[in-house]
Amino acid sequence: MKRRRERIDRGIKARSGDLFALCSWREMLYLSTPRLLPIIGLLVLSFALSVYWQRVLLSVSVFALLAISWDILAQTGMISLGQALFFGTGAYLAGIMNHYWGWPPVVTIPLATFFGGLLCTGFLVPVLRLRGIYFSMVTLIIPLMLVRIIEATRIFGGTEGISGLAPLPSRWMELYLVIAALLATLFGFRRLMSSDFGLVLKGINDNDRSVMNAGINIYWFKTQSLFIASSVGAFAGAFMTHIYLFVGMPVFALDYSILPIAAAVVGGIGTFAGSVLGAFILVPLSEILRGLGGLRIVFYGVFLVLFTVAIPEGIFHYIQRKYHQVERWVEVEK
């Protein structure tokens, strides 16, 4: 006698599939809970946490942004190994504008977001025509090289970096700015990817020939996706610059490349919510494991391998499944 696991959509999922969901509170709740949860959760957390953990929440949000940015690239078939490139570019741009030209954060953050995105896209556009692996290679080495170059040529403060930058007006401002950005990106990107534009992006990843054959210039679409992703990364960098009040070589460090990937992989690729979830797990974990120093990165590495090999769908898909479906064992006649 053999058994297999059967998965069936919950009744409520079917019932809330169309407009009639508006007839019942239960169904509306079923639909809105997963969407409200991150909003309310973040707001409650922002009040409930101590100042130290508020800081952690800040960096969770920043890493979540980087992970989301990684995820949208991955969904378009570009595997970035260097989110630090986006982060660092944004960070340095904001730092330079603030330090050398004296512009306030209100100006530097948006400008660094836009021009950071533009700059990184410009860097990487030639690679888009090549096999996917080139994109990974180039994104991996460019930030590592930039560090050495800043060190060697001593531009922008060299190893010292640029310090004494302007802070944001208040602690609350910092927190709510990044939370708002995170929520906007999360919901915006989910929306984007379920639109027809998103379908084209996913189509490129799946079967670029077929998309090309529809008269669509896949390179232009990839470029747009790259710009969107790198702008988000640059925003994270610019924001962090005005939190640390400092910008220097560490912004190109591997941490900013590896942790976002780990977050997306652990949380689940292709949903954005998974990336956020992953960041919420890994960043506090790494705070707790702070004492271990370099060993933290070893853990990320191991996580990456374990999840890609053993649980490639990630945690979020698992939760999603439990939420929408019931499972039971049924017997199969031999």
């Binding site: 027809d196 379908l199 084209v200 189509g203 008269g215």
Partner: peptide, 17 residues
């Protein structure tokens, strides 16, 4: 695109310039 319903497969050509 196997995961998508047939009519969603038509979206990409219909998105064409």
């Amino acid at each position: 695109f196997y995961q998508l319903p047939a009519y969603k497969n038509m979206i990409i050509p219909l998105y064409s310039p």
